[in-house]
C-alpha cells in the first residue's frame, strides 16, 4: 500500500470514528482531479461544480460500504464515473437556456445552446489547450471516458479496468483507439 493510500485509509478511519470534518482532507486531495474529469464529461462549469459536490456527498454517505479491497481512489473514481454516466443518460447532450420571445400575439420559448463565458476561459491562456479541450469533448463517449481516466487522471490500466468493470484487453483497445482518434484530430487542427 502506498503512502497516499494509507493516508486515505487513516482519514477514512477518522471520519468513520466520528470526526466528520476530516473529510475535508479527502475533498482537498481529490477535488481537482474529480472536477477535471466531470467537467470533461459534462462540459458545463456550474453543473460540473454541482456534480463534483454531489459525488463527494455520495462518497461520504457510502463510506461505510467501502470494503478496502481496492484503493480508496479507485472506489472513489468508480462512484464518480458512474454518477457521470447516469447523469449524461438523464440529460441532453447540450445545455440549453430558455429565452422568452414573442411574435405578434404569440409567445413562445426558444431553447438555445448555453454559450456563456465560464471561469475556465480565464484560466486557459493558451489556444493550444483550448483546442485540446474542444477535441477531447468531441471524442466518442467510450474514448473520451477512457482518455480522461488514463491521460488526464493518469490512472493505471488495472485501475481503469476496475473502475469501468471491463477487461484489461478492452481497456488497452479503447486507449489505443481514443489516442489515435485524438492524435488525428489534433493533427487536423495543426497542433502537432
Amino acid at each position: 500500500m502506498s503512502n497516499s493510500d494509507s493516508e486515505d485509509i487513516q482519514v477514512i478511519d477518522r471520519v468513520l470514528g466520528g470526526d466528520v470534518e476530516a473529510f475535508t482532507q479527502i475533498i482537498d486531495k481529490y477535488k481537482d482531479k474529480a472536477f477535471n474529469y466531470i467537467y470533461g464529461q459534462i462540459k458545463d462549469y456550474d453543473e460540473a461544480m454541482d456534480i463534483t459536490q454531489e459525488v463527494f456527498i455520495m462518497t461520504m454517505e457510502a463510506l461505510r460500504s467501502f470494503r478496502r479491497e481496492s484503493k480508496f481512489s479507485t472506489w472513489f473514481y468508480s462512484i464518480m464515473v458512474n454518477y457521470c454516466k447516469n447523469y449524461r443518460k438523464k440529460n441532453s447532450r447540450y445545455n440549453l437556456v430558455s429565452m422568452n420571445s414573442s411574435r405578434g400575439d404569440e409567445e413562445y420559448d426558444l431553447q438555445l445552446p448555453d454559450e456563456r463565458e465560464n471561469p475556465e476561459e480565464e484560466v486557459i491562456m493558451k489556444e493550444s489547450l483550448r483546442i485540446v479541450r474542444d477535441e477531447i469533448s468531441k471524442l466518442p463517449d467510450d474514448y473520451r471516458e477512457i482518455l480522461l481516466l488514463r491521460d488526464i487522471q493518469g490512472l493505471s490500466y488495472n485501475e481503469i479496468a476496475g473502475i469501468l468493470g471491463i477487461s484489461l484487453s478492452n481497456v488497452k483497445v479503447r486507449i489505443h483507439r481514443g489516442r489515435e482518434f485524438l492524435k488525428n484530430r489534433l493533427l487536423a487542427r495543426g497542433l502537432i
Binding site: 484560466v123 493550444s128 491521460d151
Partner: peptide, 11 residues
Amino acid sequence: LCREYAGLSLP
C-alpha cells in the same frame, strides 16, 4: 498536451 491540460488548476 493532455498532461498540460490536466495540470490546469481550475477555480
